[in-house]
Nucleic acid binder design. Structure first.
Lengths: 279, 279
DNA sequence: AACCATAAGATTGGATATCAATCAATAAGT
DNA sequence: ACTTATTGATTGATATCCAATCTTATGGTT
């Protein structure tokens, strides 16, 4: 069993990529220490791990917050992700055996079935997983870890932005990438990977504000009771339908925001489907 | 000023990539706490950062050690490094302006002068730096950090292996890569990057044992006195000339070694020049 | 002498209490 | 209304203490 701070870091990571902890959310040491029933020191170590992973931001004497990547950083993350996946694609087109291609096709098929069944949540998860499986086939653990970190950061981004693209066009990209690669059309596959990510990031509209709907205690509760398995209640992507002044349980939640001259209703409208991540 | 644990992590990182702390070296909490004159907790936080970076390995209830990557991991690190630099090369061949090419050429020229002057140490440093500069021109901070971490890990590898290649063939690689890229011959440039790293890693012969020549206290002393600037006394790559039983100041240094059935003189002989890293 | 089991010592992982420095927010004064 | 001072809260860090675990030394057994 690994150290407790690692466990806590994993739980926080999970909560962040599940969009239960949103960017800007304060991660107070004392608060988390109470939630996890550990000392502040263990929490601090966990927060250091999160910060190293790019998911949290620690400001001296101010504390830790869920990271709020800038649009620039978002572009860089997707750029790096594209670079890595293109490189892996080039490797796989040379080295991957039939079993590997079969695994990829099987995965695509599972996602297709989920889409057909209207199970958007499962399709989302499978869509995420495809990229992980893809890189795992490179059999390079170092690369896998780098890639997984990038994927986590893109997932974080998704709770910071307003999805604004027609995601239907992206559904078949995975399948097409596999097809192209297996046929040896590496260049086209790499272009498709690039387009895939560009389409996603172009549709992003960074919101200046994110309204937390859960306190850390509420957000983390599902992960705490005994079994470490995640909750089935992932928070779907959505924007608050009403103005900030909505009362309710989250009225006392504090979000760390830089001083912005904020227009009263500056948020962009969500034009199209907001569900469904980039896959 | 950033936190003290970050400062200590930076210092330890520096000591490791300077080969003053060698793989397997025990990083005792109490010992480091005394050296840096901080509490054990700060040291622990620094060690967590190092472990996240792949430079240290923390074993539960056993403590932290400078990482001893396996040959497999070494191959993976170089594989990932190749992938990243090839990707960056592809980006630069499209996007880099004249100023960028000039910067690269200027850097190559500086290294050439250092070689001509017989300043192997400086040439080594510049050779390392070339890769950093190369990736910095991508203007992607996320990618830079990923790449810098990989470079640190290759530097760590170099204190674990016996260089066994004719490094003269590698001296012009940087220049040739710049030439090829500027001329738009991307494919050849990428192949050269691949060959460059393959040549390096193929020459590696993992030693089963590394004999520390410095205690942590001795290794870290130069970094401590006031100025944070590194020492000018980088430890050059070399193998002990004699059998393990050489007495001296380091007789009491403990190195973490897995239980190996070790042949008395199982080390490979260093055939050619041992100085000069992979650049 | 070799071998196994136990006991002692040392080290890590963690908890708690405490203190100084800094930030945020309030209260007071002009 | 605006600026300043005080107060409170939080973080960064230390010291001390304790339990769990690993390593080593010890001692008995064959």
């Amino acid at each position: 069993m690994s150290s407790r701070s690692q466990t806590i870091a994993d739980t926080l990571t999970r909560a962040i990529i599940d969009h239960r902890l949103v960017p800007g959310c304060k991660l107070g040491e004392r608060e988390l220490a109470e939630i996890f029933d550990v000392s502040r020191i263990v929490v601090r170590q966990a927060l250091i791990r999160l910060a190293d992973d790019g998911l949290a931001q620690i400001e001296r004497n101010r504390g830790a917050f869920v990271a709020r990547p800038s649009m620039q950083e978002a572009l860089e993350i997707y750029d790096a992700l594209t670079l890595v996946e293109q490189g892996v694609a080039a490797q796989l087109s040379d080295r991957l055996g039939p079993a590997g291609w079969a695994e990829l096709r099987q995965h695509v098929e599972r996602q297709r079935q989920a889409v057909a069944a209207g199970n958007d949540a499962l399709a989302d998860v499978l869509g995420q997983e495809f990229h992980i499986v893809f890189v795992r086939l490179s059999r390079n653990k170092v690369m896998q870890e780098i890639h997984a970190q990038l994927v986590r950061r893109t997932t974080l981004l998704r709770s910071l932005i307003t999805a604004d693209f027609d995601y239907c066009n992206l559904l078949d990209d995975h399948s097409r990438v596999v097809d192209l690669l297996e046929k040896g059309r590496l260049k086209q596959a790499m272009d498709l990977i690039d387009t895939h990510h560009r389409t996603v990031v172009r549709g992003y509209i960074m919101d200046r504000e994110v309204f937390p709907e859960l306190t850390p205690a509420e957000a983390l509760a599902p992960y705490l009771d005994g079994k470490a398995d995640g909750p089935t209640t992932a928070i779907p992507l959505r924007r608050p339908a009403k103005a900030p002044g909505d009362g309710g349980a989250s009225a006392h939640v504090h979000v760390h925001l830089p001083k912005i001259d904020r227009a009263p209703t500056s948020r962009a409208s969500t034009k199209k489907t907001n569900r469904g991540s980039s896959s």
